[in-house]
Amino acid sequence: MAQPSEGRPGGVIHDIGYRPYTGPRQGTDAAARSLFVAGLLNAYGIGRSGKAKGLPMTLLAMMVVPAAIMVAVMVTLGLTEGFLNYGTYPVSLMLVIVIFVAAQAPVLFSRDLRSGAISLYLARPLSATAYALVRWASLFVAILVFIGLPVLVLYVGALTAEADVSEHTADFLAAMVGIVLLSAVLATLSGLVAAHTRRRGLAVGVTIIALLVSTGVVTAVQAITSEQGNETAGRVVGLFSPFSLVDGVQAELLGGQSSFQVPPDTVGWGLLYLVVCLAVIGAGLWLLVRYYRKQAGR
């Protein structure tokens, strides 16, 4: 259909002379930074349609509001001790985190593959490897902000309520290290699922089921095995959910409080949990990079 604006060549609008660009051109690092920022904003729906902002913003509110209420109660009643636990806050809001991760990973990993925009990215200076890593970094930071923001609110609230600064700072930093690890593991797993499924609905479903079911299984098996007195089995099972995995590292190596029944009880177990954590991230990134390098030739 010929739109009025798709007028014949030589139309009034088209005929303003072409201006070549003679200004500076930046390198691939600037392009990578730009892609990172754009991806991070896209994960929260910014720079996309208005509809796309609804879910991530609602979920973020669901994460932060409980923390804000806790802070309000704490400040009003003057509570400073035993009320807050930075490390367990993310696990208690696991469902909200899982929905956010599952819904927003496809934004960064399925959308370009599905729309075909990936071929435009790969026809530009940034390599397929850099593209995959930058996309991962955007998702990682988006999840980090999502989980870290409410914990930061708790920490600031505690300081406002004149809690013991050094004690709270140590707890907060330990919890943040755990949150960084959790964000990296979740970004890797959900990114892999989203890139391979391509279809958003499918990716969301698979991610939610994988994360919730694995955590459910860990909780159930740990309950059964500890009843039978076999805690080793429970600890091994704990390696199979991102939440129990990072919880174990956080509880054993960083001195946090565990949300699971059978956390690692020795430094050895703690280290094993940490190694598995890093291995998941490393292997996942390698698979992602390999996948995107293959896309270049398509």
Partner: peptide, 17 residues
């Protein structure tokens, strides 16, 4: 790739932008 522009044959535009 920094000096060249490419218009592919297939669809390559994200619909929500």
């Amino acid at each position: 790739r920094s000096l060249v522009g490419y218009m592919p044959e297939h669809d390559c535009l994200p619909p929500d932008v």
